[in-house]
């Protein structure tokens, strides 16, 4: 039951997002720039990488994003990078170097996943699709994406109900046994296809021409430009200059 519940919770997070006054394209570009910067760090540069966490921290505070929810969300990225990096202490030149490279890999994975989470929490799916259209993303893909997103909740709930009903009929079983694989998923598939046909007919009746009208939402062009430029400079500085060391020197000078 955990998987459907988690999926529904994450979908609702995206539903509640948006309305931050920044153009979704600006949010998307800054996120891509940030992820590129994080990915480009060398595998032993933990000090530089730690500085990139400032972006996540500031946006979490600014947009009231729960850090606990975010950590729960990025858990799969943590697990995956840990699994890949676990061999580094054995195969790197020394255990310490391998441990450092493993830690760097895990932090990189978590920061990138957190950036994607914040992007969705900032913008929401529809404004993000509007930003993708601005970038000339094909309309077919956008329509499929939006339709899929619209029916995700309904189908996940349906699976949850089917699983509950099955468990109530067969208490004590773990997972679906082999003999019911085809009929269980097949029935869901048939219902989904029938639903898709009904959806298409009703869309046609309402004048669907193969495209959705998308709006980026209300936003301030000035704030969007300021947001992009400021974050661009900050990410560039964090990536290429030892900002923390410079701040430390400045701090000691002030204290003296």
């Amino acid at each position: 039951m955990k998987k459907p519940d988690r999926a529904l919770r994450d979908i609702h997070t995206a539903d509640d997002a948006g309305g931050n006054g920044i153009h979704p394209l600006a949010c998307l570009l800054v996120t891509i720039l940030y992820i590129l910067a994080v990915m480009s760090f060398q595998k032993y540069n933990m000090a530089g990488l730690a500085g990139m966490a400032l972006y996540i921290l500031i946006l979490c505070i600014w947009y009231d994003i729960s850090i606990l929810d975010m950590l729960r969300h990025i858990w799969p990225a943590f697990l995956l990078t840990a699994m890949i990096g676990i061999a580094n202490p054995i195969f790197d030149s020394t255990v310490s170097a391998g441990t450092l490279s493993m830690a760097t890999l895990i932090v990189k994975g978590c920061l990138c996943a957190a950036a994607a989470y914040i992007l969705i929490a900032q913008t929401g799916i529809r404004p993000l699709c509007s930003a993708l259209r601005t970038l000339h993303f094909p309309k077919e893909l956008i329509v499929v994406l939006l339709l899929m997103y619209r029916y995700l909740t309904a189908l996940v709930r349906e699976v949850k109900q089917m699983l509950t009903a099955y468990r109530l009929r067969t208490p004590g079983t773990k997972g679906l046994p082999f003999r019911t694989w085809g009929s269980f998923v097949g029935l869901l598939l048939l219902r989904s296809i029938d639903r898709a046909e009904e959806v298409y007919e009703s869309m046609q009746l309402r004048g669907f021409q193969g495209d959705f009208l998308l709006s980026p939402g209300s936003y301030s062009p000035v704030w969007s430009a300021v947001y992009t430029v400021l974050w661009g400079i900050a990410i560039f500085a964090l990536r290429f200059f030892p900002v923390f060391q410079m701040a430390e020197v400045l701090l000691w000078r002030i204290l003296k």
């Binding site: 899929m148 699976v159 997972g175 869901l188 639903r195």
Partner: peptide, 30 residues
């Protein structure tokens, strides 16, 4: 064009079907 709504709902179906754990015979895992 009628394929596009089917594609959308099928995408949601694949996603929803991934929530189902299938027990693998003889292994105890899923």
């Amino acid at each position: 064009e009628q394929k596009i709504p089917v594609m959308g709902v099928m995408g949601a179906f694949v996603f929803a079907a991934q929530m189902i754990n299938f027990s693998i015979p003889g292994t105890g895992s899923s």
